[in-house]
Design a protein around this nucleic acid. Sequence first.
DNA 1: CGTTGGCACTCCTAACTGCTGAGTGCTGAA
DNA 2: TTCAGCACTCAGCAGTTAGGAGTGCCAACG
Lengths: 355, 355
Amino acid sequence: MKLDLTDHRLDSRAREVLREIILQHIASGEAISSRSLSKSGRFQLSPASLRNVMADLEDLGYLTHPHTSAGRVPTDRGYRFFIEYLMQQRKISQREREVIDDEVGHVHEIDEVLQLASRLVSRLTDQVGVVFMPTLLQFAVRSVDFILVGGDNKVMCVIVGVNGVVVNRIVETRLSFTREEVERIGKYLTVEFSGMTLDAIRRRLIRMTEEERALHDQMLQKTITLGIETVGDVAPVEHELYVEGAASILTKPEFADAAAMRKTFLALQEKEKLVEILESCLSEDGLQILIGAESDFTQMNNFSIIARRYGSQAGPLGMVGIIGPMRMEYARMAPLVDYLGRALSRKIEEQEQHP
Amino acid sequence: MKLDLTDHRLDSRAREVLREIILQHIASGEAISSRSLSKSGRFQLSPASLRNVMADLEDLGYLTHPHTSAGRVPTDRGYRFFIEYLMQQRKISQREREVIDDEVGHVHEIDEVLQLASRLVSRLTDQVGVVFMPTLLQFAVRSVDFILVGGDNKVMCVIVGVNGVVVNRIVETRLSFTREEVERIGKYLTVEFSGMTLDAIRRRLIRMTEEERALHDQMLQKTITLGIETVGDVAPVEHELYVEGAASILTKPEFADAAAMRKTFLALQEKEKLVEILESCLSEDGLQILIGAESDFTQMNNFSIIARRYGSQAGPLGMVGIIGPMRMEYARMAPLVDYLGRALSRKIEEQEQHP
DNA sequence: CGTTGGCACTCCTAACTGCTGAGTGCTGAA
DNA sequence: TTCAGCACTCAGCAGTTAGGAGTGCCAACG
């Protein structure tokens, strides 16, 4: 699947032409004609000569024709080559950096990461923002605290991970507790389970219920019950996905007609598929760009995804990124997403180091 | 603005015709012709006679014509009359009741109310769900707790209202605290400020900073600082609005063309305007139905809003409801929203009584 | 041999046409 | 009061045409 790095069949002029076509297409959304290319002034060539070059690029699979009398449009492969070898990443601007730092700075709880996309998308791009957080099964715990928040059985559980990430849940337990009890249980669990993953804690708690000792020690029983109902229940949370800003793509010319619009929205609603795509990217570090059909999701034919993993050395926490039409401004979006992923990771790592 | 209750100009036959037209239109989305009305069998009249009745209804402003050779379509006024006098509310079904009770039961924290709409909308209707929560300025506090969640200055603040509603925020404070300190401060604030509103607490804290005593008592100073940074900061939170399920309206025939679709999405994005509309409903109890232009929001011309206040005797907390095309199934949606609002309020009142 | 102007060809698009069917309004008779 | 009949209106569709944008290819030119 990997493209020949150099593709010796393309001389430097052909590359320049491909690059110019893609840039123009990204800017306008239209198919690019030999004449408009010639007029752009980038080449001292007549339309006829450019037609020859374009025909070659088409033969090699970098361009297509919507129909005979239309200009050329880049293919997936064309975009891929562009991104890999022709694109000059624009530096992220001061303002963009500030906006990202600002928003990332406001994220305190893990659930809040999910809303990050929405705000950033509206402040920086007009694409669709996506944040994905896999299950917390591998989430290593630093501390557990409980607070009674109503009655004697409504308990808020606040779990802080070794990476400084905070999760909280409120549950109504079967048993009754006093303020002092839940406090004590929190301290006990923190000491006992510090460093373990939620998954391990869960299994350990369940094993403890089977031990004889638990049957007799009432306090221990209460501890285990509360632990299972709260800490043990956080882990099996679904993969969480947040998609935001979908309305923005309405303004793009490629979604001018109702059918395309509808198709797009339905595709974005299929969160399972998106989760699958993002999950498959989770194993690799660095910025990931998926173009059109590369993502293997037929309904996303005309879309590209730019995403990046975030997390710490302790392990990845999820993916952030954007989805947009294939002809998006990669040169601007790629550094943005890259910086966002790094900023999030940096923040998490800082928290890890200064507990 | 209020309609003549009886409108003596409408005899019982005209009413029946209006009712049938609206029901048919709601079901099909099409303009209703005299012939199809006659064929429906509800009336023993020829199309020609029905045309006379329909012409009368049009003169009185209950129906219109998209164009000469089209059938009749209800006007805002027609819908209003229908809802007020002609509609037979369908009883809410067992299943619907269960779904609502189930979802409401899962709401523990106030921020979670906002997501309620999204889940209910997808489980019960294909409309757009809306939840609105005004500022918490009038939120009366029962207890305040703090937990250190990283470093010595990252504090989670958990506030429980007298209505049992839970709010939590994480902030990084300027000062450093120990576990014991934040615990003590929580207990102190709970005792000191119990029953007061966030707004009052905030003002009181600020006043305290000006008192001489605070300058000398270091612990008091820490308490005030933490209080202002957390409790005092929750109140001025923006009005929060949650709109969900927008994609569902794509399937409705009235949004078949791209222009209508785009217009709709843009309207739904204008949250300030929606907030304004919902806020104006907040003063009245009971189910509220706004039809088309009644909401005074030109871009919502073709939409209706069904919403209801939720809260307790202590005061309203916000609005829940749905937005849909004018021709939505009022008979089914109205009781749904009504029950949802009541269920939410009931839950809040229960919590109020059993602290 | 690469470059270029010219020309035929393709195919999209928009505008115009006429036709059809749905639906109304009106009138006059039962 | 009801209703059949008829003239009229109008949206929507199909078919036609003209225009324009682009390409592909060829032959000539430097």
